[in-house]
C-alpha cells in the first residue's frame, strides 16, 4: 500500500555535532577576568550600602526622571528638525538646500557642551527677546536651565538626525518616487505616504542609538544647572563627600534607562522591517516558546 509508506516519517539524521573549542577557551578567559574584577571590587573602598540607599533617594529618582524627560523632548525636537532639514536638503531648491547644509555644518561642527553654554548665556548677546505678536521678555527669564538644555541638546541632535533621515530618504528606490508621481501625487504627499515610511527601516535603528546616546549626553546639561541625574548626584556628594557611591547610584540609573530603551528599540526595529524581510527577528518570548516546543519534541 503506497499510502502507508508516505505516512511514515523519514528517518531522523544522527550525527556528531561540531565542537566549538573557541567558545570554551573564551569562556575560561572571561571567567578569570570576572573573578579578578570581583576580587578587586571587594577590596575597593566603596560603601555599597550607600549606593543602594541613594539609588532610591527622592532627589536621585527625580533626577533620573528629568534625564528621561529632557532626553525624550530633545530627541523629539531633534527628529522634527532632522526631517525638516533632510527634506530641505533633498528638495532641489538651492536656498533651502544651502540653509540645511549650513545648519548641519554649524551644529555638527561645534561641541554640544559649548552650544549648551551659548544658549544658557544668550542674555549677554540679546538682553531681551521679542516674539512677534506675543510681546517681549527678558532673555534671562526665558532661558531657564530647562529651555537651554532642550535647545542645546535638541538643535544639536537635529544636525545628526538630518543626516540619518537623508540617508534614509536616499535609500528608497527612485522608482517609488516615479510611480507615485505618475499617479499624480504631489511632492509632499509622496514624501509622507510613500518615501518616508520606506525610509523608516533605515532611519529607525540609528535613531534608537541616537536616543540611547541622548540619555547619556543629557548629563552635559548639568553644566547649565538643569537638575538631571548627574547634577542631582553631584549636589549630594558635594555635601556628604561619598563621591563614588553616588556616581555608582547614577550609573545604575543610566543602565536601567538605556536597557529599557534598548528593548524598546528591538521591537521598534522589528515593526519597521515589516514588508522588507520575510523572516522577522524572533522576540525573546517567541524564542522561549520555540525552545520549549523543541525540547518537547525531543522527548
Amino acid at each position: 500500500m503506497t499510502s502507508t509508506a508516505s505516512v511514515t516519517a523519514p528517518e531522523r539524521l544522527v550525527a556528531v555535532p561540531v565542537r566549538y573549542w573557541g567558545r570554551w577557551v573564551s569562556a575560561v578567559v572571561v571567567l578569570v577576568l570576572v573573578g579578578l574584577f570581583l576580587y578587586a571590587m571587594t577590596r575597593a573602598d566603596v560603601n555599597w550600602q550607600t549606593t543602594r540607599h541613594f539609588f532610591t533617594f527622592p532627589t536621585i529618582v527625580r533626577g533620573a526622571g528629568r534625564t528621561l524627560l529632557i532626553s525624550v523632548l530633545a530627541q523629539a525636537l531633534g527628529i522634527a528638525l532632522g526631517v525638516v532639514v533632510a527634506v530641505m536638503r533633498s528638495s532641489g531648491n538651492p536656498v533651502t538646500g544651502a540653509v540645511g547644509w549650513f545648519y548641519v555644518w554649524f551644529f555638527r561642527g561645534t561641541p554640544v557642551l559649548l552650544q549648551l553654554l551659548v544658549w544658557f548665556n544668550l542674555a549677554f548677546l540679546f538682553p531681551t527677546l521679542s516674539f512677534p505678536g506675543l510681546g517681549s521678555a527678558k532673555t534671562s527669564d526665558v532661558m531657564t536651565p530647562f529651555v537651554a538644555a532642550l535647545l542645546g541638546l535638541g538643535i544639536n541632535e537635529g544636525a545628526y538626525m538630518a543626516e540619518i533621515v537623508r540617508a534614509g530618504l536616499n535609500s528608497v528606490d527612485e522608482g517609488q518616487t516615479e510611480a507615485a508621481q505618475a499617479l499624480g501625487m504631489s511632492r509632499g504627499l509622496l514624501l509622507r505616504r510613500i518615501v518616508l515610511p520606506q525610509a523608516m527601516r533605515v532611519i529607525v535603528p540609528p535613531t534608537g542609538n541616537e536616543f540611547i546616546n541622548m540619555l547619556k549626553t543629557s548629563s552635559l546639561a548639568s553644566i547649565v544647572q538643569y537638575g538631571e541625574l548627574l547634577l542631582a548626584a553631584q549636589a549630594i556628594y558635594t555635601n556628604n563627600l561619598q563621591i563614588m557611591e553616588l556616581l555608582f547610584s547614577a550609573a545604575l540609573w543610566y543602565l536601567v534607562l538605556t536597557s529599557v530603551f534598548s528593548i524598546g528599540q528591538f521591537y521598534l526595529e522589528r515593526r519597521f522591517s515589516r514588508g522588507a524581510t520575510r523572516n522577522l527577528a524572533l522576540t525573546p518570548l517567541q524564542r522561549v516558546r520555540l525552545a520549549l516546543l523543541r525540547s518537547e519534541r525531543a522527548r
Binding site: 522608482g175 517609488q176 516615479e178 510611480a179 505618475a182 499624480g184 520606506q198 514588508g275
Partner: peptide
C-alpha cells in the same frame, strides 16, 4: 500642482513594477 493633475490623467506601468512595498 498643474503637472501633478495632468499626470493623474495618464496611467504608467513600469518595467520594474514599482509597487509600494509597505
Amino acid at each position: 500642482k498643474e503637472t501633478s493633475s495632468k499626470r493623474a490623467e495618464i496611467g504608467m506601468v513600469f518595467q520594474r513594477f514599482n509597487l509600494f512595498p509597505h
